Simulated assay, not measured.
Amino acid sequence: MSASRVITWDVSASRGVETAWVELGGGVMRARGRAVGTVPEPYWVSYELETAEGFVTRRLSVTVETQTQDRALDLRHDGHGRWTAGGEPLPDVDGALDCDLGLCPLTNTMPVLRHGLHRTPGEREFLMAWVSVPDLAVRPSLQTYTHLGPGRVRYASGDFRSDLEVDGEGYVVEYPSLARRLTAR
């Protein structure tokens, strides 16, 4: 790994905050993060994310604590398009390259970096293994990322659209209606 970062976001969508410790280099990303939110209910999230070459998700391990329940998810991609959660097949997300952890601006980084959408023109549609928070349900999500200019990428899924500001490394700086980075480079 060539570059380590610690990034903190004010996550307005959850009325909370998230910090991620990220290592990035050689087309691979490893991260661990912690978040606290109050919407839809107070919760703590801890996660570990590993990608293979090309920023393709290999594993996302997540735990969530709420007042009434603790949950855990071990989401794995086999490198051939198939996913499992806790060892059980998830055929609805087969073919997806990425996970998208709900309310987590870090997971927008992988598709942006893979295709250089923060630097060069293009538009790409992705099937994502979307993980909702705090229940950790995994669902398929079609998402489109469009280069708008240097450091500007439009994210779209269904009727939702947001124009993201990302830094030169592809990390979210501003995600209107979701999060804003608190830490400087």
Score class of each variant (00 low, 15 high):
Ala35Thr: 11
Val36Pro: 04
Thr38Val: 11
Val39Asn: 08
Val39Ala: 09
Pro40Gly: 10
Pro40Trp: 06
Pro40Arg: 03
Pro40Ile: 06
Pro40Glu: 09
Glu41Gln: 14
Glu41Asp: 10
Tyr43Glu: 04
Tyr43Phe: 15
Trp44Tyr: 05
Trp44Ser: 11
Val45Ile: 08
Ser46Lys: 07
Ser46Gly: 08
Ser46His: 07
Glu48Thr: 10
Glu48Leu: 07
Glu48Pro: 05
Leu49Val: 10
Leu49Ala: 14
Leu49Arg: 09
Leu49Pro: 06
Glu50Ile: 02
Glu50Val: 07
Glu50Asn: 12
Glu50Thr: 07
Thr51Leu: 02
Thr51Gln: 03
Ala52Glu: 08
Ala52Arg: 11
Glu53Ile: 04
Glu53Ala: 09
Glu53Tyr: 05
Gly54His: 07
Gly54Leu: 04
Phe55Tyr: 15
Phe55Leu: 07
Val56Met: 03
Val56Gly: 05
Thr57Asp: 13
Thr57Tyr: 03
Thr57Glu: 06
Arg58Glu: 13
Arg58Asp: 03
Arg59Pro: 13
Arg59Gly: 11
Arg59Met: 14
Leu60Phe: 01
Leu60Gly: 00
Leu60Asp: 00
Leu60Ser: 01
Ser61Asn: 14
Ser61Glu: 15
Val62Met: 03
Val62His: 01
Thr63Pro: 00
Thr63Leu: 05
Val64Asn: 00
Glu65His: 01
Glu65Asn: 00
Glu65Ala: 01
Glu65Gly: 01
Glu65Val: 03
Glu65Pro: 00
Glu65Cys: 01
Thr66Asn: 12
Gln67Trp: 08
Gln67Glu: 15
